[in-house]
Nucleic acid binder design. Structure first.
Lengths: 222, 222
DNA sequence: CTTTTTTTTGATAGATTTTTAAAAACTTGT
DNA sequence: ACAAGTTTTTAAAAATCTATCAAAAAAAAG
């Protein structure tokens, strides 16, 4: 589940944003100042940082600059003014997107979803009745649950979220098992096989979608 | 250098955007309608698509949806209205960013730079409808896949990525097989032959492009 | 602690690709 | 036109890769 760091000096705003985001299943951490945010980022990896521009001591621009010295985490700036000059400044400094106040829940969530999508970290993805959902850890076809093991679920998730892209066995191991895993590539084959069987039995034509790329790996095609 | 597809029915707007972008070193292609854009995307890989929302026949939303069926290219929407509802709609459909008219040169370039920065470099190359893509591990001609073996795919990749440069058989072996390979040069010939056959069968005039340099090796000419 | 489920491993058959080697065809320079 | 050198073609052997299966090992659940 994506974790989001929200940085704002007003606690009312922190509450509001956290409320919206946690309702959507995101995990939120709060920072009441730029220094506080930078300190937190030394210890934790966040998926997205939401950064208010107007803050005492260190403003949002400065925090953004500082973050970019050591991290490429996606940053969304929160700005009160609707001025193009500010937008350009933010983008040049290294922000990825910005939201102008006042904003509503829909806009906030849409921007975060768009950013996560671009990074390949969606919470759910569906294709022709086949639905993959991170939150309940379930794959369903036409409403029917296809029971998968954790590894199987992760593999099909990465493939579905990145259609047309080939993943080598080693890439999948790095992504799912972790960089320091000793697991060998052939293990992936077994999981793919078992997963294919289970999905096929559900009636979904997985053989049209999940392709073996000889000598390279596996990919999902739409 | 990144190539950008600009889609707008007004030629004045096409001129303006192209002028700004080309001054910054980007290469621009123009499309005067959604259909025109979709057609172009079958033949060429673009780094970014800029899409006007207000167009006759097929509007920007629809074009965006269509593109998302087969490509994850970053899309920037051009919208006249500054309405949050439109922004949310665009992001939900699969756009990555949007710009409201009127916009200035700085804003346009800042947004494109931000998107490219976040994206990293795309590993693909296209020439006259022949598209080579690393991430998909696919070579296509006018949208049709040309099935290649791994070695064949690598060879044509190196040649296409370095037009006009001659590669000796030994160079190709070093690059593809690895420095310590014992494979002999004649093996390359076999792969080139098989690859030529497959590409020729697709209809692409490969004999005009992939040339044998007698006594030296092979090269791709534009 | 026992049972159940998941993950990993190893062995093998089948499919595909890669390599080799020799003959044929083609270039080049004289 | 000829000879020497190089590339292309061809076909078969060798090597590599994938799918499959069963069984062992590990992890999770009861």
């Amino acid at each position: 589940m994506p974790t989001i760091l929200v940085v704002d000096d007003e606690s009312r705003m922190l509450d509001l944003i956290s409320f919206y985001l946690e309702a959507r299943g995101f995990t939120c951490e709060r920072a009441v100042s730029g220094n506080c945010a930078l300190e937190k980022m030394k210890h934790t990896i966040y998926d997205i940082v939401i950064l208010d521009v107007m803050m005492p001591n260190m403003d949002g621009w400065e925090v953004c600059k500082q973050i970019r010295l050591f991290s490429s985490v996606p940053i969304i700036m929160l700005t009160a003014r609707e001025e193009k000059k500010d937008i350009v400044k933010g983008l040049q400094i290294g922000a990825d997107d910005y939201i102008t106040k006042p904003f509503n829940e829909e806009e906030l969530v849409a921007r975060i979803d768009a950013l996560l999508r671009r990074l390949g970290k969606e919470k759910s993805i569906s294709y022709d009745g086949l639905v993959w959902e991170e939150t309940n850890h379930e794959l369903t076809y036409q409403g029917e649950v296809i029971p998968l093991t954790p590894k199987e679920f992760s593999i099909i998730g990465y493939l579905m979220k990145n259609p047309n892209r080939v993943f080598s066995r080693e890439q999948l191991i790095d992504l799912i098992w972790g960089m320091d895993s000793e697991t060998e590539g052939r293990t992936v084959d077994s999981h793919v096989r078992n997963m294919r069987d289970k999905v096929r039995k559900s009636g979904f034509p997985i053989d049209h979608c999940l392709k073996t790329v000889w000598g390279v790996g596996y990919k999902w095609i739409n």
